[in-house]
Amino acid sequence: MSSSKKIRVLVAKPGLDGHDRGVKIVARALRDAGMEVIYTGLRQTPEMVVRAALDEGVHCIGLSILSGAHNALFPKIMELLKAEGVSDILVVGGGIIPEDDIPDLKKAGISEIFGPGTPLDVIVEYIKTNVKL
């Protein structure tokens, strides 16, 4: 491995909710942890998320939803990734996501869900540990 190898992360907000305080803070924390963070802004369709992830050659996708649309959108993103033959991108989620929904989201391929109040270090460490470079 070369010394200049970097973890690249796509941070995205699928769906329509505009609450991006959390996602921007996480993006900043990942940058401060030495990662390259690509942020695409609000209102991303699952197709847009997947396209950006592939074009940018990211190792990890971080998704944030606070509106409750996660059960529809997270699995859709996983399906599209699978259809593209991608299995080596780590996908994590965050936002307001009820505990009861987490098992199904994990079954769909989301590796971890970070709820409100998760320390930034926990997210950073999780990605560093689990990402496939």
Partner: peptide, 9 residues
């Protein structure tokens, strides 16, 4: 873009 969002909030 409304997918999953209808009636949610």
């Amino acid at each position: 873009l409304a997918l999953g969002e209808v009636g949610k909030v």
